[in-house]
Design a binder for these strands. Structure first.
Length: 425
RNA sequence: GGAGAAGUACCCAAGCAGGUCGAAGGGGACGGUUUGCUAAACCGUUAGGUCAGGUAACUGGCGCAAGAGUUCGAAUCUCUUCUUCUCCGCCA
């Protein structure tokens, strides 16, 4: 959510930004919200004045009552009726306009960074950089489920029986590998100076509606029956939720956090659970990074965050590339975003394994995350990025570390988490 | 899950038979006096947040866990929710 004062001051900037995102249908919203905002402020001023008047009269009544002049007080009281009606009407309008303004403000996209490439949709995303040589081996790489099954590491028949599609049993060395990757990711981020968190895996409805839009909520979140609780879709929900309506000291920034959680997603919508395997599933685990910082620091943090993810994958010998979201593909809340994609030797293309976002102050404004400054408070900037999310990440891992003989090489950093094994299979 | 008690500003805490209460009193923090320095003592300052109006000084609204209600008027009364503490029950 952007500052409505920006729209008052520089509506053309906001319009240009909407054009850059190819959301031409939203252009009329700017004038609409300017008009509604004017009406809101008019109604608020009227209400404020009426309330002020009422407060004065109430005080007079109080004084009279204390002096025992009951009759005079009653006289004034009887006159107050008209005003009460006016106030009621004015407050109704104030509320109505306020809500309309809010509704539109939620639809107006955040101002994107100057460096964001202009493009209509994901086909126009831009490759920023490649890391590592995308190798195509001279033997056939099986589908990841087949690799896992050959290693006796996955049981999809059982999970279909117990839970349906989109779930899995991992077992044996593959399950261990899964945990090893997460443990390594945790320690990797701790070494970068991040504070490790295990957050709540369920959050209340008001937190959910704070951190995402209604449609996202419908398409992603599992609700606990009979409770005002939802299973989190990512630990970012809990981690950002923890900052709602707080004022942070400047000295406490930047907050650099790395959180682990299982993630639960309904995956209703464009890409449902359509494919056998662990690429798109209802349940996975993820190590995440979250940064809350001063506005002037967010650009630098953005670059650091995606570079950490790249470094992590490279340390496991997985080639990656960084793909920048073009203006049209960027979610409305984001200032800038890149996807980290891992190389799939089987498909001979890159696929998404993480997403790094700078939300500027939009998320903070919406949630009331402020910084106590010397000259008043201001909104923080928030960023988040995936460190790693297995089991999807295991697809890249298995394909890139598969030997011709069917064994899987364990890269050096993982070995201490795998009982010293140099390979499995 | 059951039964009680409570949530007031940075912290502790008064107010709760509705009206000079935006809120006593401490403590802390900050500034000053004294002092070679520190401590102590004394004097003083510090109410957060947010919205609106105004070029500005400033003015006004909201605000005593959150929300709703009663009332001319609510920290104070009613209801709902949340949180904390104590006891009982249950449980990794």
């Amino acid at each position: 959510m952007i500052d409505i004062r920006l729209i008052r001051k520089d509506p053309d900037l906001v319009r240009e930004n909407i054009k850059k995102k190819f959301q031409f249908e939203k252009l009329p919203l700017v004038d609409e919200v300017i008009e509604l905002d004017a009406k809101y402020r008019e109604a608020k001023l009227r209400s404020d004045n009426l309330r002020s008047e009422r407060n004065t009269i109430s005080k007079q009544i109080g004084t009279l009552m204390r002096e025992g002049k009951r009759e005079e007080a009653e006289k004034i009281k009887s006159q107050i009726g008209k005003m009460a009606k006016q106030l009621e009407e004015s407050e109704r309008l104030e509320k109505e306009y306020f809500e309309k303004v809010q509704e539109i403000m939620l639809q107006i996209p955040n101002i994107i960074d100057d460096t964001v490439p202009i493009g209509k949709d994901d086909s126009e995303n831009v490759e920023v950089e490649r890391f590592g040589e995308p190798v195509v081996p001279d033997f056939e790489i099986p589908y990841h489920v087949d690799i896992m099954e050959r290693l006796d590491g996955i049981d999809l028949d059982s999970s279909r029986k117990t839970s349906g599609s989109g779930f899995y049993y991992l077992k044996g060395n593959i399950a261990r590998l899964h945990s090893a990757v997460l443990s390594y990711a945790r320690d990797f981020m701790i070494d970068k100076g991040f504070t490790y968190y295990i957050p709540p895996f369920m959050i209340r409805g008001n937190v959910v509606s704070g951190v995402m839009s209604f449609t996202e909520m419908e398409n992603m979140m599992y609700k606990i029956e009979g409770e005002d609780l939802y299973l989190i879709g990512t630990s970012e929900h809990s981690m950002i939720g923890k900052f709602i309506d707080t004022i942070l000291d400047e000295e406490s920034l930047p907050q650099t956090l790395t959180s682990y959680s299982p993630c639960f997603r309904k995956e209703v919508g464009a890409h449902g659970i359509e494919e056998r395997g662990v690429y798109r599933i209802h349940q996975f685990e993820k190590q995440e990074m979250v940064v809350v910082c001063k506005p002037e620091d967010s650009k630098a943090w953005f670059d650091k965050l995606w570079q950490y993810a790249v470094e992590f994958f490279r340390s496991l010998d997985i080639p990656v590339r960084v793909l920048e979201c073009c203006s049209g593909d960027l979610a409305d809340l984001k200032v800038k975003s890149v996807d980290v994609e891992a190389w799939s030797p089987r498909q001979q293309k890159y696929f998404e394994v993480g997403s790094c976002s700078n939300l500027g102050d939009a998320q903070a404004r919406r949630l009331g995350i402020r910084i106590k400054g010397k000259d008043g408070n201001y909104f923080a900037h928030t960023l988040n990025n995936t460190v790693v999310a297995p089991p999807r990440m295991l697809i890249a891992f298995l394909e890139n570390n598969l030997n011709k003989d069917g064994t899987i090489r364990i890269p050096e950093p993982l070995r201490i988490y795998m009982g010293g094994k140099e390979f499995i299979g």
